[in-house]
Write a protein that binds this DNA or RNA. Structure first.
Length: 726
DNA sequence: AAGGTGACTTAGGACTAGTTGG
DNA sequence: CCAACTAGTCCTAAGTCACCTT
């Protein structure tokens, strides 16, 4: 098959080695838990062999830490720094109580404010340089006009309020998240519509009419009939137990065995409904669309501090059967319907408060501007709180996102020092320090998650770094020609399997042997460590540092390195994009972002191949044509045949290009079979790296980010230049 | 420390809309 | 024009981490 450029994403660089041995002292006191761990069942057994990088990139540590928590450091506005790149240096000089400092400074970084023209002049005066024409894209909408004005709730929506550049404004420094917040409240789940009476339910072969409560819950089950999990014991058991709670006493006494329940007619009915929906006329579909749009317009936005912002999830989650991921002990439980009485509304005192549906009231109306959510309620499966919050394109999310990358860049400056330190710590005489150091090494090198402890029986048995158990690793003094190999095999977040064989330094290896001494498979590997100890330690090493910062840092730095390495200047556009995707893929592999291979994968691959073959045929035909045209030309030597040759040549070129494009596509798709790029792109990769890359190579940003992504990363697109360095 | 809660980020899969090419 | 297939959106579960209480 014609797959070109097969690059092996799995190949990895590796560096470290070093060694030395070490015996130690120890004594562990254990606090082992005894639980039964089952987790054989790697249900999604998508295994992959990966190896990882570590990377190196360093910089001097120079930062001082301390910064009041919550606050953002920033600079006094009046000072004129923030010229372009001025490096961080400290900015902690707080001026006399003037708590307003400029945001730019906070995020040191070479950030050059660009064209401004924001509404507030105050901003204006502080932003001096503005450069224009940065834009990557042809979009015209870019220019913002004076959006709105002063406070007050004038719902400024005459016009979509062109692109507000919140990143050119100051940030609050008092821990408040907003000053004014107004919204319409959530959209409640649609009420239950009883089944038409022709749709029957049978118990033990006999038809039985259910009351509306029991019937509703039954429909939840009926809708899942062809799902595999309705066959799982835990699912059925949990469902049945909760279902019975909804039954009248009469129903309850009759229905005692789930196996005797026949939901088929109900299942068929829903299937038919969805068919019908698909078959609806254009007109009807349009009507639905319009209605959705209306709902979105009405409930999908809020006013926060003078700006209309999009809400992420404005609908209350409808009732249904809970399906956790992996082997979840609560699968099948009834997720109950949320009523207005369960809902807490958060908004400004002086805003127009959302009103509850007629005849109901909210559980509570509060005005807490220290949080970002608009609505919350407590969910009944785990008892956790759910929230309605703003869209990623909103100021409140964007600032936080930006800040996250700045913290990761700070780590870049001191990562060398930290690495040296944890290596030293491998030799510590204190067990807890060694454990901390080895765990940190894993987090850094393998981008593992922190691994909070979880309550047993409340959720699937998954682990992260600190919660690894002895049974999750195997040690091989020598394997496949490499020394000191650690084999990881565990279920991580979302019960995604993490499988990796990594050669480690000898000291790490020895330490692991030590940690495992006298332990049972189900004992904690790091019995003297947990995430809170680890994070406390990290916080001391660098302000704002926590375990997850390493993931962000390593992901972003890897992207940057890989882009540098993979992009070749003379490649054409599709090839450049392939290079980008490969860099992105390297990160996804590092972070273990997997996906189930699409159901239609094989087939669609085949289709592509067919196309490629067809294209090849066309190409060889076209080549033949050129030849014969040339021959013609030789004989005739007239203008006309000359033209003909040109035309045919053009055709060949065009075909070649098309073929190449297809082949690139095939390669990309193949390599991406079980790797999901979206998660890293959205959550781990500093968007400025991508923006800079696009600018540097003249790639339209749309090739890398779709519309939603461009909205989320508007700040980066606006501010990053082609020379941006993470 | 330990344990609990709250807020917020990160995650994969289901669902849907939009595009393409037959 | 329609079916087939993707790409993008929606959904909500499952993490992280700070902070509070004991």
């Amino acid at each position: 098959m014609a797959v070109i450029w097969r690059g092996n994403t799995q190949d990895r660089l590796h560096q470290d080695t070093i060694s030395s041995g070490g015996g130690n002292s120890h004594k562990h006191k254990d606090k082992y838990k005894d639980k039964e761990h089952k987790h054989k069942d790697h249900k999604k057994d998508r295994e992959r062999d990966k190896s990882k990088y570590g990377n190196s990139d360093h910089k001097e540590f120079s930062e001082k830490k301390h910064r009041e928590k919550d606050r953002i450091k920033h600079e006094d506005v009046s000072t004129d720094r923030h010229k372009d790149k001025h490096k961080e240096k400290d900015h902690r000089k707080d001026e006399s109580g003037l708590f307003i400092r400029c945001l730019f400074l906070f995020f040191r970084t070479e950030f050059k404010p660009k064209k401004i023209k924001i509404e507030n002049d105050r901003v204006d005066k502080k932003t001096k340089k503005r450069k224009q024409d940065e834009d990557i894209k042809p979009k015209k909408t870019q220019k913002n006009k004076k959006g709105e004005v002063a406070d007050g709730k004038k719902k400024a929506k005459k016009e979509p309020e062109e692109k507000w550049k919140w990143w050119e404004e100051e940030r609050a420094t008092d821990g408040s998240k907003w000053r004014f917040l107004e919204h319409k409240g959530p959209v409640m789940a649609a009420p239950y519509e009883p089944l038409p009476s022709k749709v029957r339910f049978f118990y033990d072969g006999k038809q039985m009419k259910l009351g509306p409560e029991a019937e509703e819950v039954a429909t939840f089950f009926a809708k899942m009939l062809d799902h595999e999990y309705t066959t799982k014991d835990a699912f059925r058991k949990n469902f049945f137990k909760d279902w019975r709670k909804e039954m009248t006493s009469e129903e309850k006494s009759k229905i005692t065995d789930l196996k005797k329940c026949n939901f088929n007619e109900m299942g068929e009915y829903f299937k038919a409904q969805s068919e019908a929906r698909k078959a609806m006329t254009k007109d009807d579909k349009l009507k639905i669309k319009v209605e959705n749009e209306r709902l979105l317009q009405e409930y999908g936005f809020c006013i926060m501090d003078n700006h209309k912002e999009r809400i992420a999830n404005f609908r209350i989650e409808p009732p249904g059967l809970f399906r956790g991921r992996g082997d979840h002990p609560k699968m099948g439980m009834l997720k109950r319907r949320i009523r207005p009485e369960d809902i807490i509304i958060n908004c400004s005192k002086d805003s127009k408060h959302p009103k509850p549906p007629p005849g109901t009231k909210w559980k509570e109306l509060r005005h807490d501007n220290k949080v970002t959510w608009l609505v919350s309620w407590t969910e009944n499966i785990q008892g956790s709180i759910k929230y309605i919050m703003l869209n990623p394109s909103s100021r409140i999310k964007g600032e936080k996102d930006w800040q996250k990358y700045e913290t990761a860049r700070n780590l870049k400056k001191c990562v060398d020092r930290l690495r040296n330190q944890y290596r030293e710590d491998w030799k510590s005489k204190e067990m807890r320090i060694r454990q901390r150091a080895v765990a940190l090494y894993f987090i850094d090198k393998l981008a593992l998650r922190a691994g909070n402890e979880k309550e047993e029986g409340e959720s699937a048995d998954t682990v992260g770094c600190c919660s690894l158990r002895v049974e999750h690793i195997n040690l091989y003094p020598e394997k496949d020609g490499q020394e000191f190999v650690v084999e990881f095999d565990f279920l991580g977040k979302d019960s995604i399997r993490y499988y990796n064989k990594v050669p480690v330094e000898k000291r790490v290896f020895k330490n692991l042997q030590l940690f495992m001494e006298n332990k049972q498979p189900e004992d904690d590997l790091f019995d003297r460590l947990n995430t809170s100890i680890l994070n406390k330690h990290l916080q001391e090493l660098m302000d704002g540092l926590t375990a997850k910062v390493f993931r962000t840092y390593n992901a972003s730095i890897t992207l940057q390195q890989q882009l540098k390495e993979l992009t070749s200047p003379d490649e054409n556009l599709p090839a450049k994009i392939l290079s980008y995707n490969r860099a992105n893929r390297a990160v996804a592999i590092l972070c273990n972002h997997q996906r189930a291979p699409p159901k239609t994968f094989e087939k669609s691959m085949q289709n592509l191949q067919t196309k490629i073959d067809a294209k090849k045929d066309q190409l060889s035909d076209a080549k033949r044509d050129v030849k014969s045209a040339k021959a013609d030309l030789k004989v005739r030597r007239d203008e006309k045949s000359k033209k003909a040759v040109e035309t045919k040549k053009k055709a060949v070129e065009r075909l070649e290009e098309q073929l190449m494009k297809l082949e690139v596509q095939a390669t990309d798709r193949e390599e991406n079979k079980q790797i999901a790029l979206g998660t890293s792109k959205l959550n781990y990769l500093d968007p400025r790296i991508s923006v800079a890359w696009c600018k540097k190579w003249g790639i339209p940003i749309e090739k890398i980010y779709n519309k939603t992504q461009r909205e989320k990363f508007a700040w980066a697109i606006d501010m990053a230049e082609d020379d941006y360095e993470f």
